[in-house]
């Protein structure tokens, strides 16, 4: 049987900009209402995640993620994150965002 395939316009950004975890999102639309540029609009279905309509108008201020009441429901992704790298001082190992087998997350809370 033939496989099904779909066509959509190419994404306008080199990154996803805003990813919403559909299982965690409650569709409260707080992110929609704190966004300075209306990157997102509400879904036509109540309780569903908003639609990321204008990702190329994102300023990457991060307020949508900061003000989201559900941890990890929104991830803001900077363009070209893969270029960010660091070196472990003691061992000389090199790391970068997106690498295979990354080091465990650093869970130290910020000062705020």
């Amino acid at each position: 049987m033939a496989e099904k395939a779909y066509m959509v316009p190419n994404p306008v950004m080199p990154c996803r900009v805003i990813s919403i975890n559909e299982e965690l999102c409650t569709g409260c639309n707080i992110c929609v209402d704190v966004c300075r540029t209306d990157v997102m609009v509400p879904s036509s279905e109540e309780g569903k995640p908003p639609i990321v309509l204008y990702p190329d108008e994102c300023w990457f201020c991060g307020c949508c993620a900061a003000d989201c009441p559900v941890p990890d429901a929104i991830t803001v992704e900077y363009p070209l994150n893969q270029r960010v790298g660091w070196k472990r001082k003691d061992t000389g190992e090199h790391f970068r965002i997106g690498m295979k087998n990354p080091p465990p997350p650093n869970t130290k809370p910020p000062v705020c």
Partner: peptide, 27 residues
């Protein structure tokens, strides 16, 4: 880097990717 505008994403993204300022030197 957290309270400065737009830095929260950096703090979260880099930390999640395993960056540890106690051990690591950011390029």
């Amino acid at each position: 880097v957290y309270n400065e505008g737009k830095c929260r994403i950096i703090y979260d993204t880099y930390n999640k990717a395993g960056f540890d300022p106690d051990k690591d030197m950011l390029q």
